[in-house]
Amino acid sequence: MKSDKKIRVHFKSNHANPDSFPPTIEGENVFAMTKERFDKAITNYPDLIHKIEPIFDWDLDNFYESMKTAEVLVCWDFPTENLSEIAPNLKWIHIIGAGVEHLCPMDWVPENVSVVNNRGVHSAKAGEFGLMSVLMLHTHIPEIVRNQQSNHWESLYSSPIVGKTLLVIGVGNIGYAAAQKCKLLGMNVIGASRHGKDLDDIDQMVTQDELDEVLPLADYIFMSTPNTKETYNLLDKRRQSLMKPGVGIINVGRAATMDYDALVDNLNSGHIKAAIIDVFDPEPLPSDSKLWTTPNLMVMPHISADDGDTYIPLTLDLVMMNMRRYIAHEGLNNLVNPELGY
Score class of each variant (00 low, 15 high):
141 I>D: 00
145 V>M: 09
123 S>R: 12
85 E>S: 12
85 E>C: 09
131 L>I: 02
98 A>G: 15
143 E>Y: 06
95 I>Q: 06
101 E>Y: 11
99 G>C: 15
91 K>S: 01
144 I>M: 13
123 S>L: 05
118 N>S: 15
135 L>I: 12
98 A>S: 09
106 M>S: 05
118 N>D: 02
96 I>V: 08
144 I>H: 00
104 C>R: 14
97 G>D: 10
85 E>Q: 14
95 I>S: 03
109 V>P: 01
100 V>S: 07
79 P>A: 01
113 V>H: 01
117 N>W: 07
129 F>D: 04
117 N>D: 03
106 M>N: 06
124 A>F: 13
100 V>R: 14
95 I>K: 08
79 P>S: 08
111 E>M: 09
119 R>I: 13
115 V>S: 01
124 A>N: 08
84 S>V: 02
77 D>L: 14
91 K>N: 12
137 L>M: 05
144 I>Y: 07
141 I>M: 05
114 S>E: 05
125 K>H: 12
137 L>G: 00
137 L>D: 00
109 V>M: 06
122 H>M: 14
114 S>M: 10
83 L>V: 05
93 I>H: 08
110 P>S: 05
108 W>D: 04
77 D>Y: 14
122 H>C: 02
140 H>E: 15
117 N>A: 00
108 W>Y: 13
138 H>K: 12
116 V>F: 06
130 G>W: 14
145 V>N: 11
112 N>T: 14
127 G>K: 04
92 W>L: 13
126 A>Y: 06
79 P>I: 15
90 L>C: 03
80 T>Y: 15
77 D>C: 11
105 P>H: 03
102 H>M: 10
136 M>H: 09
108 W>L: 01
134 V>D: 03
95 I>W: 14
93 I>T: 05
131 L>W: 13
98 A>Q: 07
130 G>F: 08
101 E>N: 12
101 E>I: 15
98 A>W: 06
86 I>N: 01
87 A>N: 00
88 P>I: 07
130 G>R: 14
120 G>L: 10
140 H>M: 15
117 N>K: 14
136 M>G: 00
93 I>L: 08
90 L>K: 04
135 L>T: 00
113 V>L: 07
115 V>H: 07
